[in-house]
Amino acid sequence: MIERFDIRQDAKGWTVLDAGTSRPITIMDVPQVGLDVRDALDLVDALEWPAIRERRTFQD
């Protein structure tokens, strides 16, 4: 499975990145930087979920 999002530690916490561009993602014009590690991981899981669900549908 190709990951579309990743996290990286920054100066104030963790940044959620677009794996293709290595740039922070933004949600409602807010860059997702300086997050708690659990929040960053939860966000990546939430963002990846539609792709995982779609792959499961095609495999079933």
Rank of each mutant, 00 (worst) to 15 (best):
M1I: 03
M1A: 13
M1D: 13
M1S: 14
M1H: 10
M1K: 01
E3H: 11
R4P: 00
R4G: 04
F5N: 02
F5V: 04
F5A: 03
D6R: 14
D6T: 14
D6C: 10
D6E: 13
I7V: 14
I7W: 04
R8F: 01
R8D: 09
R8H: 03
R8A: 14
R8Q: 15
R8I: 08
Q9F: 00
D10P: 02
A11N: 10
A11E: 15
A11Y: 02
K12V: 11
G13M: 07
W14P: 00
W14G: 02
W14D: 04
W14L: 04
W14T: 06
T15Q: 08
T15F: 01
T15W: 04
T15D: 06
D18S: 07
A19L: 10
A19Y: 00
A19G: 05
A19P: 01
A19E: 12
G20I: 05
G20R: 05
G20Q: 05
T21F: 01
T21Y: 00
T21I: 06
S22H: 10
S22D: 15
S22C: 06
R23W: 03
R23D: 07
P24D: 00
P24F: 05
P24S: 13
P24K: 07
P24Y: 08
P24V: 07
I25H: 10
I25S: 01
I25T: 09
T26K: 15
T26C: 13
T26Y: 08
I27H: 09
I27T: 05
I27F: 11
I27M: 10
I27R: 12
I27P: 00
I27W: 09
M28A: 15
M28G: 06
M28N: 15
M28W: 05
D29C: 02
D29V: 07
D29E: 13
P31R: 09
P31E: 14
P31Y: 00
P31S: 12
Q32N: 05
V33D: 00
G34P: 02
G34Y: 02
G34S: 02
D36L: 06
D36Q: 10
D36Y: 01
V37Y: 06
R38K: 12
R38Q: 13
R38C: 01
R38E: 15
R38A: 10
D39Y: 08
D39R: 12
D39W: 04
D39N: 09
D39S: 14
D39E: 14
A40W: 06
A40N: 08
A40L: 03
L41N: 15
D42C: 11
D42W: 02
D42Y: 03
D42I: 04
D42R: 10
V44C: 13
D45I: 07
D45M: 06
A46M: 09
A46T: 11
A46G: 06
A46R: 12
E48S: 11
E48Y: 03
E48A: 08
W49Y: 13
A51P: 00
A51Y: 15
A51M: 07
I52E: 09
I52V: 15
I52L: 14
R53M: 07
R53I: 08
R53K: 13
R53G: 00
E54Q: 11
E54K: 14
R55S: 13
R55C: 05
R56N: 08
T57G: 08
T57D: 13
F58T: 14
F58H: 10
F58K: 12
Q59A: 15
Q59K: 13
D60P: 02
D60K: 11
D60F: 02
D60W: 07
